[in-house]
């Protein structure tokens, strides 16, 4: 198959697709860093937020951390299978990763429904504004990762474009890292 020059050329020695993912992650560091840094500064300046943060469900957050860590493991196993040129196995592990994302979102939707029902909405208080913004932005990234995995899966299954498994894996692990920081900030620091 004829590939565009930009796809095959690599000045850095890193395959172009993977390099693009690293650039995406570099920009995401600033995006999430800005949100989490702002949250942290406000949290330290507003001791009264502790009366709000006690209402977040630590167990739901911990379970979701477990789910994301496990889905990251599936992404690693998918990458290993892709390295071994076993597209079917890689696609299967990608599917498990997507399922992990789905479980994460389902737990989140129950959590948010309960919180909104209790009266804690986006505009209730600045703590809740940060809570919904940070977790919502993260949730959108989870959805984006799931969609990309579903898009690449048919080709992967046919042993085509297997390098994409590693690329989406790198992205997924980053989404996992963001949650690793969100969890203590929103659920443990009471």
């Amino acid at each position: 198959m004829q590939r565009p020059i930009a796809t095959t050329r690599s000045a850095t020695g890193i395959p172009t697709g993977r390099l693009a993912v690293w650039w995406v992650i570099a920009s995401e560091i600033v995006i999430f860093g800005g949100v989490l840094g702002s949250y942290l500064m406000h949290r330290l300046g507003h001791p009264e937020w502790s009366h709000q943060s006690i209402h977040t469900n630590t167990w739901a957050g911990a379970f979701n951390t477990f789910v994301l860590l496990t889905s990251s493991l599936c992404a690693v196993l998918a990458h290993q299978a892709a390295e071994a040129k076993d597209g079917k196995k890689a696609a299967r592990f990608l599917m498990f990763t997507v399922l992990g994302g789905l479980v994460f979102l389902i737990v989140k939707s129950f959590e948010w429904s309960h919180e909104i029902h209790e009266g804690f909405t986006l505009t209730s208080n600045t703590f809740w504004s940060f809570y919904y913004t940070a977790a919502g932005l993260h949730g959108l990234h989870v959805i984006a990762g799931m969609v990309i995995m579903l898009i690449i899966m048919p080709d992967v299954m046919k042993n085509k474009e297997l390098q994409r498994v590693e690329n989406i894996g790198i992205y997924w692990h980053f989404v996992d890292i963001v949650w690793i920081f969100l969890f203590p900030l929103l659920y443990i620091a009471k």
Partner: peptide, 12 residues
């Protein structure tokens, strides 16, 4: 939270 909510938001 109900008393604080809404009222605090515009000024927070």
């Amino acid at each position: 939270h109900h008393a604080e909510g809404g009222e605090a938001a515009p000024h927070a």
